[in-house]
Design a protein around this nucleic acid. Structure first.
Length: 423
RNA sequence: GGAGACUUGUCCGAGUGGUUGAAGGAGCACGCCUGGAAAGUGUGUAUACGGGAAACCGUAUCGAGGGUUCGAAUCCCUCAGUCUCCGCCA
């Protein structure tokens, strides 16, 4: 959620930034400011009247103490009259506050000045590329054929057990999942991230805190009996660890990493994009999250991008890093870099990681603050990134390392999966 | 799942309807004391919103939300969480 203060100080700049994010209805900014004015007026009216009620009530207490019952009775009637006049103000104030909140929440985060202007993925900017594309032999096939050939991932049985998009990993396929998770976690903890294993379901307040609610409700699996949401990423529980807390400046930066399965309904997805491991309802992911001093967040964003890049390099996959344009960025992000790996047999780029700086957008919702030198509470910045999402990494690993009768995985994985040969 | 106890500030802890935003203690910060430190001692030490140039003032907040009352941390209701006992169970 944007800070009201920012809208007040520079409404025109806010509108201009919203436009970069392809947010058309910039009049909302004016609506919010006018609601805020109303709120202030009502608040003042409420406060002054309530102050009278409070002091009169105290007097009643004192009169009662002295045994002056009649005077107390007169006062009581005065207070009752005041309270009656207060009622409409209270109602109006509550209504204005709710409208203000509801309106503020529909505004996406403002893109940083570094964000390229553009509408679609075609407008994203390739920051750099690495690795080299494989030269696959004739007869090479996409991963959805490879997994059948070597019997390592079974979509049909997954669909039988649960539904489509819930893969069943088997043998080397299962071992590869376990090994990659462990490898990624080790890589992250070696870089100073503290490992967590969070709950896989969250309550409403947590889903709201990271920005999944209210607008992305349909993307999450929901358990109505308990009012819990299955997490779409461990970013949700992990970032919420510090919800409603005021940190010491010395505590920053906080670096966390976590593995979790991720559950996504992916309503509305269809076509060739969703084939095989390209898009599934449940997948494994290792996430990195940082909570940092506001002055440091862009430095940290680069650090996180470099970290993921290093990891990707060890897997010997061809990749590219994109700086997302305003139109392709997520709702809560101020600047996002996407990582894509090249999947040789499909001959296309697959997103395997997304690293974002949310600045104060999430922390304002969660009220995560720190005390600065003056002892004043100030919002921290939050960042996160995948390091990494497994399915597409696996798709690329399988496709790019195939020969006619085997798949030879990179040796870095030997320690984690035993034999790197699938045949 | 059943029965009961509980949830107060950074922490511990008092407080069962009336100047209680909240005693007392610990911690922390600053000062005094000291050659330096400890001990001692003094002062300060929540957050949000609003008003104000500021000092400061007002309002709200004692798990969350609602209610009773002129007045609620204190009474009532709902929900969440913690603990104990019983049941069930990996």
């Amino acid at each position: 959620m944007l800070q009201l203060q920012v809208l007040r100080q520079n409404p025109d700049w806010v509108k201009e930034r919203l436009t970069v994010k392809q947010f058309k209805d910039t009049d909302v900014v004016d609506t919010i400011l006018s609601l805020d004015d109303q709120r202030k007026k009502l608040q003042l009216e409420f406060d002054t009247t309530q102050a009278k009620v409070n002091s009169a009530s105290k007097e009643i207490g004192q009169l009662m103490g002295k045994g002056q019952k009649e005077e107390a009775e007169t006062k009581k009637q005065e207070v009752t009259a005041l309270k009656n006049s207060l009622q409409p103000i209270t109602d109006k104030l509550a209504e204005v506050e709710k409208r203000l909140q509801d309106t503020l929440v529909i505004l996406p985060n403002l893109p940083s000045e570094k964000v390229p202007v553009g509408k679609t993925p075609a407008d994203n900017i390739v920051v750099r590329e690495g690795g080299k594309k494989p030269n696959l032999p004739a007869g090479s096939v996409p991963h959805w054929d490879l997994i059948k050939k070597y019997d390592i991932i079974d979509f049909e049985t997954g669909a039988k057990i649960t539904g489509s998009g819930f893969p069943l990993y088997k043998g080397k396929g299962a071992r590869l999942q376990r090994g990659l998770i462990q490898y990624f976690l080790d890589f992250n903890t070696a870089a100073g991230y503290t490992e967590y294993l969070p709950p896989f379901m969250v309550n409403e307040a947590s889903a709201y805190g990271t920005g999944q609610l209210p607008d992305k409700e349909g993307q999450m699996y929901y358990m109505p009996e308990d009012k819990f949401y299955m997490i779409p990423t461990s970013e949700v529980p992990i970032t919420n660890i510090y919800r409603d807390e005021i940190l010491k400046e010395a505590d920053l930066p906080i670096k966390m990493t976590a593995y979790s399965p991720c559950f996504r309904r992916e309503a509305g997805s269809f076509g060739k994009d969703v084939r095989g491991l390209n898009r599934v309802h449940q997948f494994e992911k290792v996430e990195i999250v940082q909570i940092v001093h506001p002055d440091k967040s862009y430095e940290v964003l680069e650090e996180m991008v470099n970290h993921v890049e290093k990891l990707l390099n060890t897997l010997e996959l061809p990749y590219r890093i994109l700086k997302l344009c305003g139109g392709d960025m997520g709702f809560a992000s101020a600047l996002t870099y996407d990582f894509e790996v090249y999947s040789g047999a499909q001959e296309r780029w697959l997103e395997v990681s997304s690293v974002s700086n949310f600045e104060t957008y999430q922390t304002n919702r969660m009220k995560i603050r720190f005390k600065d030198e003056k002892g004043k509470p100030q919002l921290v910045h939050s960042l996160n990134g995948s390091s990494m999402a497994l399915p597409r990494v696996v798709a690329a690993l399988l496709e790019n390392n195939q020969t006619s009768d085997r798949i030879q995985l990179p040796t870095v994985l030997e320690k984690y999966i035993g034999s790197t040969l699938i045949s």
